[in-house]
Design a protein around this nucleic acid. Structure first.
Lengths: 221, 221
DNA sequence: CGCAGCTTTGAACACCCTCAAGGCCCGTGG
DNA sequence: CCACGGGCCTTGAGGGTGTTCAAAGCTGCG
């Protein structure tokens, strides 16, 4: 977002922002609370959640650096935000963002681009939630993480044409289940199935290697 | 959207637009096609769909008048659009919209507001797809239609405090199933269950009356 | 009336969930 | 160093919800 600003605007903005470090599991924004600050994810992964009265939870989005965080032009947060891994967030007060957006159309334009991209991703995920089987869901999730977690080395791979990946899962089984609309047990079983089929390998439950992304893609439905 | 324009801008825009009438079932936009025109829904309901290679389909959104139609700042359509009922659409060429948006920040702002609202709705629906039971899904769908199909008489009801509704379903069972991530048969069975429980009444499969929306809300999870 | 398309209903099955137990990893303390 | 304990993950068995397959009922229209 800050790429749209010139030096003096950046300086002005920096007076109102502060960098905050959060550990995995910490709540950044409570659902149904008044909006007081926005943020920018600088490092790590943030999960957006919605919860039903009886406790059923759905992860409705994952935000990676350098995504903007928060519902512009709203008064209440419609989702909760929680650190899914260790996270650095650049917090920005509501008033500062509103001023920035009002004075600088290019900033609003960039935020709109992100909103449209998030809408595309949300709709893509609706297909996964509504129409895919458990194993397709888990495969889709792994592919999503593989393509988002490490954009730098991903660009490298595109140049060299290699189609492998290796990363630490930013989410535990419970969060993966909430993202996929499944139970913990089903996620675990499907991961085991993928492992036994040689599509992935897992170490210490969180470190995943994928020798052939093309093969994984074929399992996504 | 056009509310942000002055008289001369409206005149200029009207030179490039044309009103098109579509019957239920007609395709407005093909998935994965190049974007050539945008549109504005003036009457009726448009469904947005995504389809997997093997034919499984998911309805990822419903657009009611006066929604804007199309993916701004994109080259390819990420969703298909089809008339769910008789529909009037005001079509606008890509170039005309781009010029309008570039010259008029207020237009972009309005479109951003709609994008953010659609994102909220998509995330709300992800909870329905991922975490609700079949009967909760059907109840949620009926509530969605009841609150969107007829905003005028809805406003009336809010004034008088009455909590009933009555409308023609803009979607057949197959589309409802694709929206909810269920099968036709399950949708039909759940509607029958709601009917036998006295929550709704149905005539000729498409005309629904809901005597007590509050009661329906309690069934949405 | 008869046909086509959509909807409803029924019966059997499959997939995923629930409940329960056991295993792994790691930090803590003896 | 190892034993202990808690948190998370895996595995197993059984059951329920929604699907699949099949057939019959509506509705509108020639």
């Amino acid at each position: 977002m800050c790429g749209a600003l010139n030096a003096s605007e950046l300086l002005e903005l920096s007076k109102h922002t502060r960098m905050v470090r959060h550990d995995s599991g910490e709540e950044l924004i409570g659902d149904d609370t008044d909006i007081v600050t926005y943020g920018n994810v600088m490092r790590g992964v943030v999960k957006l959640t919605k919860t039903l009265e009886d406790g059923r939870q759905q992860v409705v989005g994952l935000q990676f650096a350098p995504d903007f965080l928060g519902r512009l032009f709203g008064n209440q947060n419609a989702v909760g935000a929680e650190a899914a891994s260790k996270v650095d967030v650049c917090k920005i007060p509501k008033a500062a963002i509103e001023r920035l957006v009002a004075e600088n159309p290019e900033v609003e334009h960039r935020l709109m681009q992100q909103a449209l991209r998030e809408l595309d991703e949300a709709r893509e995920w609706m297909v996964t939630l509504g129409r895919k089987t458990a194993s397709e869901k888990v495969a889709s999730f792994l592919l999503l993480i593989a393509t988002h977690i490490d954009p730098v080395s991903q660009a490298e791979r595109e140049e060299t044409g290699s189609r492998d990946a290796s990363f630490e899962l930013p989410l535990g089984r419970a969060d993966i289940a909430d993202f996929l609309g499944l139970t913990i047990e089903t996620v675990s079983r499907q991961l085991t199935k993928l492992r036994k089929a040689g599509v992935i390998s897992i170490e210490k439950a969180r470190y995943v290697s994928i020798p052939d992304l093309t093969r994984l893609e074929r399992l996504c439905g």
